[in-house]
Structures are given as C-alpha cells and as structure tokens.
Nucleic acid binder design. Structure first.
Lengths: 213, 213, 213, 213
DNA sequence: CCCTAAACGAGACGGTACGTCTAGTCTTATG
DNA sequence: CATAAGACTAGACGTACCGTCTCGTTTAGGG
C-alpha cells in the first residue's frame, strides 16, 4: 500500500537532503500507538512529534492534517488485506467476507480507529476523499467481484444493482458499529446475508423504472 | 419532548433564583443557528455565549458538553416526529417511512447536523448515550410497530427478527449518508425496501440456530 | 469603635425587617478569620459569604468593597488602643509609643493585615480615606499630644513642626515594615527616637523660611 | 540594568528559535504604557498582549507574574539612575538626593507606579525579592557612600549606624508618599535632612549598648 | 572536496478556545 | 423590607494546541 497523500506525487526532489525514511516510520509508529491508546480525538500533532522525537515541521511537511496522518498510520498497520474469497456460492462468499470484517472491527482497537476516522472524515473533506479512495473503493472492488460472479453463475438476475446489494450488506454492519445500539454478532451476519441473498434471488434489487434523482 | 440532559432529573431546587427560561431558549436558538451555519466542529461555546448574549457559566451550568448542547438544540428545532404511517402493506409502509427520512436528511442542513452529531458521539460517551435515547430508540419504536403489524397480518413470518430488519432498512441509508460514496435517491429507497420485504417474506430474517456470540 | 462605612450613617431605617446584628458579627468574624489565614489578596467576598453562611447581598448591602470590610474586621479585632502614655520626658514617651507599635506589628498577623490594608488602600480610594480617618488620624492625635507636652515643658522649641517630627518617628518604622530590607528591632526604635529628639532639641525641625509648595 | 527575572540566569539556550528582542521590547513598552495609564491593578496580561500584538504565551514564557513584568517595564523606562552627588557637605548631599527623589515621584506617573509596585510586592513574594534587589539595594548603595564620606570627613561620628540614618531619610518620605496624609514638599525635605544631620552630629545614631533582638 | 539546498530538531511565534473563577447585580421564596 | 440562595452578565485567568516561522545543524548530490 502506497502513500495516500497528494504530497507523494510532487516534483522529483533531487537536490538537498532527501527525506529520511526513518523519520517517516517513527512518525507513523508513534501515531499508530497514540491512536490506539487515546483515540483520534485526543491525538495531537505535538504529542506525535514529541513521542517520535521529531520536529513538528517534519510531520506537516508530509501530511496535511492529523486525519490523513492517522489514516495512513491506520492502513500501514492494520492493512486489511482480506484474502480474496471464492467459495462457489454467493451466500457463503458474502458470509465469509462479512464475518471477517466483523471479526476485525467488533470490539477491537482497529474498530475504534475505523470509527474515529469515519467521524473525522465528516469534518475534514480531504480525509473524506482519501478515506473513500483507500478504504471504501478498495473494499467495494473486492466485494463487487463476488456478486458479479454470482450473476455469471446465474444465481441472481443479471440486472441486479450491485451497489445497492453491497450497501445492504455493509450498511447494517456499519450501522451497528457506529450506533452501538445492538451487538455485531455472527448470527446478525448470517441473517443479513440471508435476507440480501433471498432478496437478490427474488429480483428485488433490480432497478424498477424511472430513477431521475 | 423533554430535556435530554441528566441535569433535568436532579433535585427540586426551590431555593435561590430560578433558572431563566429565556436564557435557556436564547442559548438553544443561538446554538441551532451556529450549528446550521458552521457545523458542530466550528461551534464554540464562546460564540454561542456571545451570540445569545449570555455568560459562559450559564451554558456550562446547564449542559456538560457542546455535543449535548448541540443535540438538544438540534432536537428542539427539527423534532423529527414523522407522523405515524399505516398504509396496510409492509412494503408501502417502509417505503413511505424511509422516503420521508431520506427527504429530511439528504443534502439538507438537518442531515449535516445529524451526521456531525453521530461523528461527535463516537468521541463523547455522554452524547452517545443521549443520542441513543433521544434519536435511535425513538425512531426504532416507531418503525418496530410497522413490522409487527406485518407479522400480525401474516405478511412475514412470526419469528422474524425485527431488529435485523430495521437495521437492514436504515443501515444502508445511514451508510450512504455517512460515506457519501453514492447518492441517497428515491430509487435506492425502493430497492432497499424491496430486498428487505422479499427477504423477510422468504423467512430469511428468522434466527437460524444457535447464536452464541 | 463605630463603623467606618458610609453606609452606616445613612437614614434611620425604620420600615421593614431590621438588619440583623448577628449577620453583621458573623460577617466580621468570618472576614477576620480569612484575613488572618490567607491575607487580604486571597480574600473573596464569596468565601466570606459562604463561611459566614450569609448571602453575598448582605455583605454588599453593608460594605462597599472588600478593603473596607477588611479594615472594619481588622479594627474590630485588633483595636490598637495603645493606652495614653505620659512619662514626663519626650524621649521616653516616644520610645514607649514606638516600641508598643513595633511589638504589635513586627512579625505578627496584625502586622501582615496592616501591610495588606496599606497596599490595598493604594488602589481603593474609598479605603484610603477610611484608613486615613480610622488609623492615621487616630494615631497621630495620640502622638501629637506627646510632642506638644514637650513643647510646653520647654524640651524642644515652640515652633517645631510636629507633623514632620511624627513622620520622622513612624516613617522609618513603616519603611522597614513595608520594604522588609532590615528588621524592626528595639535597638532600631531607640536610635530613631534618639535622632528625632536630638534633632528636635537642636531646633532642626523648625520650618526654615519660605515654603511655598 | 539587566533583566530582573530569574529566567535570565538560565541555561545558554542555543537550540530552537531564539526569543525575539522585538517581542520583548514590544511587551515592555505596552506594559509601561498601560501601567502609566491605568495603574498596576487594572493592568491585565490580556490587554498587554493585545496592545503589543503578541500572543499571551510570549508573555508567560518570559515573566512569571504581572508584578515582575510591571517592575521590569518600570525600570526599563524610568531607570532612576540619579547621577552621583558629591557637594562636600553631608547636609547638601542629602538635600540634593532626597529632593531629586521627591521631584521624581511626588504627583508623577512614576510615583504612582512606584507606589503600586510596593503595594503589589506585599502580596507577591517573588516581586518583593526582585523589587528589593533592583530598587532598594541599588538606591541604598548610592546613598550609603554619601554618609560614609561624611564619616571620613569627620562630620559625624565614625560608629554612626548608616542603615538607620538612611531609613530616617527615606522612611518619612515613603511614609508621606504611601499614606498621602501630608504633601511631599521641598520644605519637608529640608526639615527631614536637618533633623537627621543634627541627630547624627549629636551622635544619636550610634548604637546604644546591647541590641539582642 | 567543497558547495548548495533541502531536511532536520528545537522551540518561539500569533492565535483561538478552553473551562474556571470572581466580581457585582438580579430575582426568587421565606421571614 | 431584609434575608439566604443562587442565577445572571462580564471578563480575566493560565493552559493547550494549532500551524507557521526561525534558528543552527546535518546530509546528501552535483560541480
């Protein structure tokens, strides 16, 4: 996984002292640690600098906001490379994927960081974009193929709206993670998958008629 | 709708000058205005005090955090008591309810405040509780009856998991509102409702077997 | 000693509930205690009210500032009614008077309060006036008679400037008390008195010639 | 005159951005102006910061209390380096010195600041020490030499107590300045000097016998 | 092998908002 | 009316971080 920042695509940068890789790693490590210990809210650039034994400028030179720094630290540590899943049936593909996600985030530091980053992204537009690129798109591309395979196999109608199906899969899970009103259990995963698959097979996810919005 | 704060359930408080209702309203009004104009993030107690022409202490005396203040201001203005819906069919009940919600929040100041409050609640535990009480529970109670009527009518199996069905209805909508990856359209609502109803009728929302989690 | 405040010489005050003497005493007692414990600087009207179990209004109704309140508390407790002194000789009169003053203030809580009140009076003009009336004038009247008796006895010239002599007696003592650069000892008192008496006898305290200032 | 603060004797402080001399001067200038205009009591750090166009931290970084800041501002402006006086006679030396002091402080902003600083020093021990070092000791060293020269010339006894004589000279003047009961005139100065000189010549300032205190 | 230019640590800088404190005033219900 | 209680506006306090800006020092490559 490469850097998410826009910085990284800047000029060749030949002359002068090159940026130190050690500094970069020290900052990310310190950020990850403070993020896990105290959360994004209580994370300050000043604490990161002092923990990483680094000047504040060295952080600002690389990352534009604490949200983006935290995102990168989050990704560099918990890189959720869920292995590609292909069991041969839509239900078990989805079940396995969603289960893995739930295990990663339910009640874990990873989950808390993820929640904090979503919250922060509501406020920081740059982070919102980076988050969308790095997490949402990546995950959706993985899941999309599972559903497309089901279409090819004829399990569900060919004109099913893949985006809607994915939102119906992950939306309820994110909902419980963020609102915390009910627990994220294995049983919940199974029921969600069952409803989605049943609905999809019944052709309910097919766009109805006009949708001028 | 009464106050959400824990303050309100304190002692009778007979002696001394009573708290001024005017002051209370002035603070809530100023908060609501600033919340709509600049968002929760940029909302400061100091600005609220100065706009409401009120001492800061008068705010701190009543509300423990800016999140809870904002929640109460939000509720006092946009009291989202959607009128009870009863069309006679589950699909159209859900459609109408979810449509109304989408119209209230998609691209509106109300929606932005709602998102900001959810984000803030991830950080402020007191706000999280108040939010859950005042918004989540209230809304779920309204929706629950729609589904229970469908069970009574025999539209869906009697052992359907109502909580799961509600999360599958609102989860995807909240997901798009918060992640912003795709728009919250009328068509989206229809498809979500269709999948949920189809899945429920197929008995997919019934708890499978053991659920030891 | 009667009240120093301007309040107290107001109208007869016939109608309504009469002011409670208990309240008055409670306030003065609490003030005196806090004054001794923490000094005038750290004394707050709020603390006095709470210690005396009295409303703040009851204090503000009686005293215009904390300085004047403190002055009255100071006087009501440590009423420095040095008994009139008349030994028959100027030197021993002055020695006894100044010694008594030094014993009362050097290193004592009384001295600390006195110093604090002088400091406060530099800032609070009302207190400055009250202080001048209640302390300075009273003391000077006592001392003036000692010097006037010496004139009558022929010990010192009849046109000696009594005010200058008194300032030369107490000025050095106040100086050491306030600046703290050197201790206020019995020996110091003796030397000061000796110089003043010698100077006065030599006719040095007689106004020279023109003094248009 | 160098800085009075304890700060100034700290480590060499090579690393990091050096403190700006301009900032220092701007703060002192603003303080001096506000001190003269409104007095020490009404002086707030916030006003100094805003007038000097400086962050509050830049003030707190340098000075521990508003008293010490005010002292330094006072000294940096009105550096009372009275030129050394040596007329050949004790009486005229003292007369000239005390007259100069009176002219500097009687009814002037300098005098008001001086009075305010003495008052503040009664409350702030750190200021008391700094004041003693910077003002009292400096002044006394100047005056001491005048009296010592008189001893060498044989004008007054060799065992005269120089400290007592100085207190008798300045004590009465400070007394009138602080208590304000009588004006600080040229005639007053002459009489005080006359009494002190006469007393000293008469050997009255010589320590009597034992002085165990 | 020096020269140049950027990166580095440290920490000062002008700001903003915090949550607390006290001042002096006002508004209740009670005596 | 005075009283106790306590809410009211106002505004300074000292602290914490923000993101920027100097400093003196280090570390490379290019000349």
């Amino acid at each position: 996984m490469e850097s998410v920042t826009s910085e990284s695509i800047s000029k060749p940068n030949k002359r002068g002292r090159p940026r130190s890789e050690e500094v970069e790693q020290a900052i990310l490590k310190a950020t990850a640690r403070l993020l896990a210990e105290r959360g994004l809210q209580a994370l300050t650039i000043e604490d990161v600098a002092s923990l990483a034994k680094v000047g504040k400028t060295s952080i600002y030179r690389r990352w534009p906001s604490k949200g983006i720094l935290a995102l990168e630290a989050f990704l560099s540590e918990f890189l959720l490379l869920q292995p590609p899943i292909d069991t041969g049936s839509l239900a078990s593909d989805l079940n396995e994927a969603l289960s893995a996600w739930v295990r990663t985030v339910a009640g874990t530091p990873t989950g808390r960081s993820l929640v904090a980053l979503i919250a922060e992204a509501q406020t920081d537009p740059e982070l919102a974009i980076a988050w969308s690129e790095a997490v949402i798109k990546t995950a959706r591309n993985q899941h999309r193929s599972m559903i497309e395979r089901a279409i090819l196999r004829g399990e569900i109608p060919g004109d099913s709206d893949v985006d809607v199906l994915m939102d119906m899969l992950y939306g309820p899970a994110y909902h419980r993670l963020l609102q915390g009103h009910l627990p994220l259990t294995e049983g919940f995963v199974q029921q969600v998958v069952a409803v989605v698959v049943a609905g999809a097979k019944a052709g309910a996810a097919v766009p109805l008629h006009v949708d001028k919005d």
